[in-house]
Design a protein around this nucleic acid. Structure first.
Lengths: 398, 398
DNA sequence: GGTCTTAATGTAAGCGCTTAGATTCCAAAA
DNA sequence: TTTTGGAATCTAAGCGCTTACATTAAGACC
């Protein structure tokens, strides 16, 4: 292995000079620089990352923790991972902009039995990005005291750790408002996910608030699913079994995977979507636009979640000790045809934050409308595809 | 920051002892061990990765290089990335089994202008995994002289670097054989991808060989696409424009993305799949089973590609200097209904390697049949879903 | 009690790099 | 010629860990 010393010796200079040449900054005579560069090239020298990290007291690596699906073999539920893959791409972009690297760790379970590995990881990175609820809170805290940590997608009310998340509540409200006001749907079925997932709690809140605000509207049943296509199929079957005689007007699924499963089950049973029953998802993962009908959903800015989380983390590394904040990113309503909009519809509309969503406080251009009504109106008025976006909101928890 | 010295001092022992306690191996009196462990716990000590790497002369990190799609914003073509995401998951599994870490780097272009970053990366890892053609050959060679490198998915005939790839040729042959022998298709349209992609070259070879072996069969046209859904739509439109009057019997797409695009274009034009024209894809990315009809394709063992590449790399790090080898993994034929099989078909059949494919040499249970015929027969005989798999073939290039 | 053996622990030399501070060089000023 | 003030370069002290080797402690045995 070629070291700095080899280069220095060969070029007849000191290691300090070589180091300076490599980092380009300091004043080195041109002739010296040239000589050194030539030797570096000839010897194929590449600085050792570990030694650099040790010496600089900075690794320039950030860690990203994913949950590995339990089942290793190819499996439809891998689609779950689409979400994190997209987030990761955002992180990747954020990280490499600054020339840093991304260290990925796949955890096996969500229950934190892998904590020793995580802890160990914290010695290899300058900061960590973790999906919400991937690591139980108490363990998270222990991690936080070693390295800066930013949690991606979680409760916007979190006060103990930095969080970057999307405005799930407003998205859900916009979706339901659209179903009610644009398509006159009144009786809803809710294909929900696990009760404890923070994002879902918010979606539930959005849904309930809108329902309550519209007299005559109600939820006629719900299914406790688990966010997978398979689980969606089960939700669909359960729906048919319990409400087959009088179908709801619309099914609101906790995410797109479930919506896809539900669509399969309904179609299988000869129920037409959206004629017999409307259907909406959440997240806007790609396959959602492939089904027939394509699924109306809410676009989560997954990529941007990754990027913002990364930026937040970098900031925390520079100025540690600031009070944790939550950053809530705006979402878009994505109208396709499973909600009842005409076939061929493909519209993407910024969602106006609802009252109580973290975004609402800072507001954006259209803010001030009392609820998601604004969105429904916008929806009918076929705005241009790429409407101007509001800035993400920065809120200090207090 | 807490260091080993802090722990040693606090516990009243030497750093050597602490180090021994941490690594569990050496003989340390139980009482000492306990005392040290307690201090470690109390202080929340975590060893510094950089220092460990430097001292051990091993980083226990392997690098994985991806190509970042040029367009950063959300974009249907991200689906391209499904492939690498899946591979990466395999790599992740392989890596974490051994307790190592995975360093991801997103490159912007495929043309190697990012080489300095790559080169630098090689100083931070013990080995690298690179997608085929992501890095131009000459640059690859320069990388190889610094760290072990394994290329994923590429020409099985490669002799200058280690490669782990899938048996594209046999997969493609099996697909076309199935179309001919099970569904009597004779006139083919080929929606191809870029000419230089190694995997596609293999697929082309498989296609051509089977066509040639069946008198009366021929390719009536082809489209030079670029593996994206959009490109598939264009291929479909081009097909309709040039052969609308007398459609081919079947369209063979270079990958599933293109097949999906083609399906959209055909459906749009009122052409029925598979009644009017059969359609097949390649890769078996998840959304392929969501379309209507679901797309018949060839399953690439993406996850396993990642795992095997990882294993190969580990091996290379232990015993460098061995002659580069290619490892070709078997593929499965995935029958759904876009090929003409009845709706509801969902069958997965191991593909018998064709002559000339690298796998054929070592063969598997069914090897010895002269071509892919064996597959076609198997296909009709509705075997159990999970048939026993042959071992991947190890071939030393010579 | 002394000697020997072995288990337990300590000492200190790196690993390859960065960088503060010391030194040398060189040309302009005196 | 001698000063002198930068610019260019060098010296060497870490960074936090591992580990070969040295030392000490504790029995075992005579």
């Amino acid at each position: 292995m070629i070291t700095l010393y080899d280069v220095a010796r060969e070029a007849g200079v000191s290691t300090a000079t070589v180091s300076r040449v490599i980092h380009g900054q300091d004043r080195v005579r041109d002739v010296t620089r040239q000589r050194v560069n030539e030797v570096i090239e000839r010897l194929g020298y590449v600085p050792d990352g570990a030694a650099q990290s040790l010496s600089r007291r900075r690794k320039e690596i950030i860690g990203f923790v994913c949950v590995e699906s339990r089942a290793r073999q190819y499996d439809v539920e891998n689609m779950n991972l689409l979400y994190y893959d997209e987030v990761m791409r955002g992180v990747g972009a954020g990280v490499s902009d600054s020339g840093w690297s991304l260290l990925i760790t796949y955890l096996n379970g969500e229950n934190g039995q892998d904590f020793p590995r995580l802890r160990n990881l914290s010695g290899k990175v300058d900061g960590m990005l973790i999906g919400h609820a991937v690591v139980p809170s108490p363990l998270l805290a222990r991690l936080t005291e070693r390295v800066p940590v930013v949690v991606i997608a979680g409760a916007p009310g979190e006060t103990t750790v930095d969080v970057v998340t999307a405005d799930n509540r407003s998205g859900s409200a916009a979706l339901v408002t659209h179903l009610i006001e644009a398509h006159g749907r009144k009786r809803f079925y809710h294909a929900d996910g696990p009760a404890h997932v923070a994002d879902l709690k918010e979606r539930r809140l959005g849904l309930e608030r809108v329902i309550r605000a519209h007299p005559g509207c109600r939820v006629i049943g719900s299914f406790p699913g688990e966010l997978s296509v398979q689980s969606g199929v089960e939700a669909g079957e359960s729906l048919l079994a319990s409400h087959g005689a009088s179908l709801p007007d619309a099914v609101v699924a906790a995410n797109d995977q479930m919506a896809i499963g539900i669509l399969q089950a309904l179609t299988q049973a000869g129920v037409r979507v959206p004629e017999d029953v409307a259907l909406v998802g959440f997240d806007d993962i790609y396959p959602g636009c492939l089904s027939d009908p394509p699924i109306t959903t809410v676009h989560q800015p997954m990529r941007m979640l990754g990027e913002r989380a990364c930026i937040r983390l970098m900031d925390r590394m520079v100025r540690p000790g600031l009070r944790p904040r939550a950053e809530v990113l705006p979402v878009d309503l994505v109208l396709r045809s499973s909600c009842g909009c005409p076939p061929g519809t493909a519209m993407r509309l910024p969602v106006t934050p609802v009252r109580g969503s973290r975004l609402a406080r800072t507001g954006n251009g259209a803010a001030g409308l009392s609820t998601a009504d604004g969105v429904a109106r916008t929806a009918r008025a076929a705005r241009p595809q790429r409407a101007p976006r509001s800035q993400p909101a920065e809120i200090t928890e207090s």
